[in-house]
């Protein structure tokens, strides 16, 4: 694997729309009023702009997450934890058969800088791709004033558990996170913590549902509790996951409230395998050989369990570990 020593370059600015084009390696990125246009030496691809920007800011915010992030069936990134592949058509049967697929590997930093530069230029005030569509404006049309607030926010990663002294805080009214409109019907109380004299501050509990209900972003997990390399993430999900996730390991979902519909496809070819609907209390593994995309008709609460053991991706890729988690005996 050759890691290209490339950095993002600014190309021309379109006089009519005001948007700047960018190049990373041999990929170029242009936008017009409705679409992102991605080109590489052998091909071109078009992605609806809302979808492109929703995917881009999450991909950066997640640190490219685990494995494959497909912006759609054609374009995406693969995380190698330090380096990142940017690909077009590499996991799409049509592009492969036509011989137009293309993949380049960069440092994670270079991809992050490129996606950040593109987002900064292509996102105008009044539109936040981390918000649900009902809670933000639209990205279509010519360039408006650029946003001055951070494009990436609210990715909270607890070291041990949310709310512990010295660890990341739970969301609250005081910190500027009101309960979302979609969870206004719930009552949130606090757990009762009673410490014996001398043990003050040593017992700890939070209202996790309250923390999730106050998230102002969607499809953007934050870490709530960590057992060694086992990471418990929580997130609020509304509308659609704007990427298709192909994991390099097994991950698990526990649906805490409401429901999410998941489309499941073969990770390498994209061939559909079917669907899963998860309702409150349902638990389901997402095997390491699939890609999945979620759809949440109403804002819902999801818990994701990830195994963050370093090097796990290589043990799955080599076949040492099976691409599914449970031995039924």
């Amino acid at each position: 694997m050759t890691v290209l020593d490339a950095k993002v370059e600014r190309l021309e600015t379109d006089e009519a729309t005001g948007y700047t084009a960018f190049r990373l390696g041999s990929f170029t990125f242009r936008r017009d009023e409705y679409f992102a246009h991605i080109s590489w030496p052998k091909g071109n691809h078009i992605i609806e702009i809302d979808r492109f920007l929703r995917a881009t800011v999450r991909d950066i915010g997640w640190g490219f997450f685990y494995g494959w992030i497909f912006f759609d069936d054609v374009f995406g990134t693969t995380n190698h934890y330090g380096t990142v592949d940017v690909f077009a058509g590499s996991y799409d049967k049509g592009c492969k058969d036509a011989g137009i697929d293309h993949l380049e590997t960069f440092t994670a930093e270079a991809v992050s800088e490129a996606f950040t530069a593109i987002s900064q230029d292509w996102i105008s005030q009044g539109y936040d791709p981390l918000n649900a569509p009902l809670e933000t404006g639209t990205p279509i049309g010519p360039k408006g004033p650029e946003r001055t607030d951070p494009l990436l926010r609210a990715f909270i990663a607890a070291d041990r558990m949310l709310g512990l002294p010295g660890d990341k805080p739970v969301r609250s009214d005081a910190s500027g996170f009101p309960v979302n409109r979609a969870f206004a019907d719930l009552d949130f109380d606090l757990p009762d913590v009673e410490c014996e004299p001398g043990f003050e501050g040593q017992l700890h509990a939070i209202n996790l549902f309250d923390h999730i209900a106050r998230s102002d972003v969607t499809w953007n997990p934050s870490i709530s509790a960590v057992t060694r390399a086992n990471i418990c993430c929580v997130t609020s999900e509304e509308h659609m996951l704007p990427v298709i996730h192909g994991n390099d390991r097994n991950e698990w979902f526990i649906q805490l409230s409401d429901e999410i519909h998941w489309n499941i496809a073969d990770k390498n070819s994209g061939a559909p395998r079917g669907r899963i609907v998860m309702k409150a209390g349902d638990v389901c593994a997402m095997p390491a050989d699939i890609r999945h995309q979620g759809f949440a008709p109403k804002r819902s609460m999801l818990m994701v369990m990830e195994n963050g053991t370093p090097g796990l991706e290589q043990r799955y890729a080599s076949g040492e570990l099976k691409p599914y988690p449970v031995d039924f005996g």
Binding site: Q255, D258, G281, C284
Partner: peptide, 25 residues
């Protein structure tokens, strides 16, 4: 908002052309 309970819960569906044991639903 729908949360489940011992007394009342509704299970989702799993419709896949695959070995369902891989998903441990």
């Amino acid at each position: 908002t729908r949360t489940g309970s011992l007394a009342s819960y509704e299970k989702g569906v799993i419709e896949l052309d695959d070995d369902l044991r891989k998903y441990a639903f």
